[in-house]
Design a protein around this nucleic acid. Structure first.
Length: 218
DNA sequence: TAGGCCATCTGGTCCT
DNA sequence: AGGACCAGATGGCCTA
């Protein structure tokens, strides 16, 4: 998927210093620790930590409020360490989620709540895409049946692989690429493009960054 | 300066 | 007993 970004969504913070600050903050919390790695859908390496496997080497950002001597203090420090790593895990998962969402302007980074809302709406949009493409396929199939042309069910698997959507009567999502653009009010416009650059009439907008969900089809 | 976002600390609760 | 999870408190940094 190669999203097309035309302009920045409204309300998104794009100030480079702020982003640099946030990124450096996040990286500071990740790079000095070893942990499990896996790959996201793009093959990017993701790092996940488990409980006590990756003791933090960085200086705590906040000073402890109470003395850490004695068994109680040591338990508390261990608990704090586990909690830190637990939150780092959570942030890694959020970063992984960000990485598979449609690209945003280079210097922008979704906040946690924005990431979750965006993901919710993105899943909704993909579901709509699938549903509408299926409806379109059924409509085309009906037309073909009525006109006496061969039905898609008679198409061999070889034909199926090579047939264009129009020829087969079905719209295969693999033949299309969704592209996204951002409106000035923070909405995302999604359109499906076929490989030959012709677009099919599946388009919708959804607000990605606003508080309430406001999804609609066009 | 107020408000938003974030990381961290902390104590409580639940589970193994 | 110890770990995971959670929510509240706190302080730092940034933007409007």
């Amino acid at each position: 998927m190669s999203p097309e970004v035309r302009c920045a969504p409204g309300g998104l913070r794009t100030h480079k210093d702020a982003v640099a600050h946030r990124l450096s903050y996040t990286l500071r919390n990740i790079v000095n620790e070893s942990g499990e790695t896996s790959e996201d859908v793009h093959g990017n390496t993701l790092t996940f930590f488990r409980g006590t496997e990756a003791p933090s080497t960085e200086q705590p950002k906040h000073k402890p409020r109470c003395e850490k001597s004695g068994q109680r203090g040591r338990r508390r420090m261990k608990a704090n360490d586990r909690e830190r790593h637990r939150m780092h895990n959570l942030n890694s998962a959020l970063d992984a989620l960000r990485s598979i969402l449609p690209a945003l302007p280079e210097d922008a980074k979704l906040t946690k709540i924005e990431t979750l809302r965006f993901a919710y709406n993105y899943i909704w949009a993909l579901t709509q895409t699938l549903r509408m493409s299926e409806q379109r396929g059924h409509a085309d199939e009906q037309l073909l049946m009525e006109s006496g042309l061969r039905s898609p069910s008679s198409v061999s698997s070889a034909d199926w692989d090579s047939a264009s959507p129009a020829e087969s009567g079905h719209v295969n999502l693999a033949d299309f690429e969704p592209r996204y653009s951002y409106t000035s009010v923070g909405e995302i416009n999604c359109k499906l493009y076929s490989r030959d650059e012709s677009t099919i009439p599946i388009a919708f907008y959804f607000k990605s960054l606003c508080g309430e969900n406001n999804l609609r089809n066009y």
